[in-house]
Design a binder for these strands. Structure first.
Lengths: 182, 182
DNA sequence: TCGTGCATGTAAGCTGTTACATGATTCC
DNA sequence: GGAATCATGTAACAGCTTACATGCACGA
């Protein structure tokens, strides 16, 4: 059981889903390819932490919908009580930004504008996710606070990613402005 | 030549330094252990992109100070013109936050407070780095805009990390407040 | 004397990426 | 007719982590 295994278990525990769905869901906080996810799902199943049902779809291939078992929930709870490792960031943009003194100013501006576009796209994706979550929330029925319990985590995390994306955009604008006034 | 190799080259190009120094410098945007850095420095040297001088120190072990060669600068410039890959984030905290519905509220609060403490520490580190950079800037002499060219990248990036840390702290407070009012 | 910081290095093993594979449907 | 989306899987390789290894100086 590595961190990704727990992460997949954690995601499935909120709402049963397929491996394909997990790729999309994980994307926000843990980069993982399908070639990593499918084998782990197999292992989780052989360990008895998840099970799956094959679901037929119209005009789409069948999918395996995974759900967490009682023993899966047990290991999830144990993991959550253990120390949490620090976030790992690997950002090639930052490495390039580091030595902009090697660039022409035009190239630096291009690098920053590309970054800006990336985060604008990301923000749009996040807002779309937020809307989907709102609809799901309504479908499941709201509790006192307006958020059904199992969607509280995703709600908090989406808000966080939106704040982060907005901060990144602000920083891009600040940097571009700073270059302009040099 | 992988991304980290270019990253090290990029960092050395701003200011010659040892492998040990690079560990500290890289930390902000690209997690890398010394066991990864030292062998790469050897490869960069055998390829002729960097060279080193052994420097004796008082009450400290000798160190190898690396500097970039002309051919190193050439490959750096080529890399900078190539497409930039998207940032990779792997954050165990987010995976746990995802399924807080499995937690007691107390555990969730503890998780958030731990995160808050981490980023408060990080912000303090960043402010300290900022002060060190300011002193270095003065030592090297300032240009028209107040930032010597080679430190413009680090200056921009530090500002970005400070904004990010402050945003994370704001989010932690918001989440804790939200839990309190449920 | 024990831990921490400075400073460099190697090796084994686990994790993650890229490429190979298949196949239906939908949109341009 | 070709590209994109949905959906799942395997294999080879590259990258990263953990552990092993050394040694001096300094403070508690």
């Amino acid at each position: 059981m590595n961190t990704l295994s727990y992460g997949l278990l954690s995601a499935i525990s909120i709402e049963s889903c397929s491996g394909y769905d997990l790729i999309e869901r994980m994307k926000l906080f843990w980069k993982a390819d399908h070639s990593q996810i499918y084998p782990i799902l197999g292992k989780l199943e052989s360990q008895g932490y998840v099970r799956h049902e094959s679901v037929k779809q119209v005009n789409k291939p069948d999918k395996k919908v995974y759900f967490v078992t009682d023993s899966g929930i047990e290991v999830l709870k144990k993991w959550m009580a253990e120390p949490t490792s620090e976030p790992v960031i690997r950002d090639e943009f930052a490495l390039k930004m580091h030595s902009i003194s090697m660039f022409d100013e035009e190239q630096t501006i291009a690098l920053l504008k590309e970054r800006r576009a990336l985060y604008e796209q990301r923000l749009a994706d996040l807002e779309a996710r937020n809307e989907r979550l709102r609809l799901k929330r309504e479908a499941y029925g709201e509790d006192d606070s307006g958020i059904p319990t199992q969607f509280l985590g995703p709600f908090f995390l989406l808000e966080r990613e939106i704040l982060n994306a907005k901060t990144e955009l602000k920083w891009c604008d600040w940097a571009l402005e700073h270059l302009g006034t040099r």
